[in-house]
Design a protein around this nucleic acid. Structure first.
Lengths: 147, 147
DNA sequence: CCGGTTTTCTTGAATGAGTCAAGACAAGCG
DNA sequence: CGCTTGTCTTGACTCATTCAAGAAAACCGG
C-alpha cells in the first residue's frame, strides 16, 4: 500500500512542494489508475471538499511535467492519468465502455521504438493503444446476439 | 490524382448519398491528410463558402462511420482525419509543432495485434503513435542549442 | 421528368473539458 | 519567525464538438 508518507516522499523527490491538493491527487491516482480529471476531482473532494477544479488541473500538470504521473488520451476520450510510469507499458481500451487496462509491451522494449521509415523524425517514444472489448462488454454483446 | 468522379464513386460504394459538402470534405482530406475539422472546414469553404461547420462535422462522422476515412486523435490535439485506410499504418507526431506523418508497421502486421496479456479483452486493433520531433523542429532546436 | 420519402444541411444555441488571470494563501528557506 | 516564491481560489472565458428544429436536397419509383 502507498502511504501518505510515501506520497510525500515521491513529491519531494520530484522537486515539488508538498501541498494538500497534490497529495490528494496523487493518492487518488494511485487508487484509481486511468481516472480522468473529473474523476480525480470527485475523489479528491471526498477528502478535501473545497478544492477548486483548477487546483486539480494544476496538480495534474505539475505531476505530469515532473514525470510522476503520465497522461494518456485515447481517441474520443478525455485525458486520463496514471502513476505507473517508466516501464514502457501500453493500454487496451474498450470501445464500448471506455474502460482501460494496462498491457506490457508485446514485442520487446526495443522493437517498439523502431519505425520502418521515420520520415526524418527523431522518435523518442512509441505509444501503443489496443482497441477492443472488455470482458464485460463482450459478454453483454454476445448475450444480446443470442437472445 | 483523385478526380471528382472517383470521389463520387467512393461515396456511392460506401452507401452514402453524394452531396456537395461530402464531396468537398473527401476532396479536402485527400489533398490534406491529417487535417483537423477546422482545417477541413477552411479548405471546403474555398469551394463552398457557405457550408456550415455542422455539415462538415456530419460529413466527417458519416465518412468515418462508413469506413471511408479514419479519425485519429493524438494526446493534446484535436481530432484529425485521413483517407488512407485499411493498411495498418501508424503515425509519428512531432511534440513541438504537432505535425503528423505516416509510418508503416515496424514489426509486421500480425505482431502488432498481439498483446502479452490482454486482461480478457477482445482486441481487434492496435494503434501505434510514435512521438518525437519532425526534421524542421529538430533542426530549429539544435540551432538554438548551438547559438 | 416528377412527386414523395428520407436523409442531409442550415441556423443557432448549448455543452463540457480545459485554460487564463488576479489576488489570497501557504510551503519552504534562512 | 518572516520573507519569497510557488500554489490555490475564484470566476470568467475559449474552443472543439454536439444538440435540436426546421428547410432543403438526394434518391427511389412511377
Amino acid at each position: 500500500m502507498t502511504t501518505a508518507e510515501q506520497i510525500e516522499r515521491t513529491l519531494r523527490a520530484a522537486g515539488l512542494r508538498v501541498t494538500r491538493p497534490r497529495v490528494a491527487v496523487l493518492t487518488a491516482l494511485t487508487a484509481h489508475p486511468h481516472a480522468d480529471a473529473g474523476a480525480v476531482l470527485a475523489v479528491v473532494r471526498e477528502d478535501l471538499p473545497d478544492v477548486s477544479h483548477q487546483a486539480v488541473y494544476d496538480s495534474l500538470h505539475a505531476l505530469t511535467a515532473a514525470g510522476v504521473v503520465r497522461c494518456i488520451q485515447p481517441s474520443g476520450a478525455t485525458a486520463r492519468y496514471e502513476t505507473r510510469i517508466g516501464d514502457n507499458h501500453h493500454h487496451v481500451v474498450c470501445r464500448e465502455c471506455g474502460d482501460i487496462a494496462d498491457v506490457d509491451c508485446a514485442v520487446g522494449e526495443a522493437a517498439c521504438l523502431t519505425a520502418s521509415d521515420d520520415h526524418g523524425f527523431t522518435i523518442d517514444e512509441a505509444e501503443v493503444t489496443y482497441w477492443g472489448l472488455c470482458p464485460r462488454c463482450a459478454a453483454a454483446r454476445s448475450t444480446r446476439a443470442t437472445t
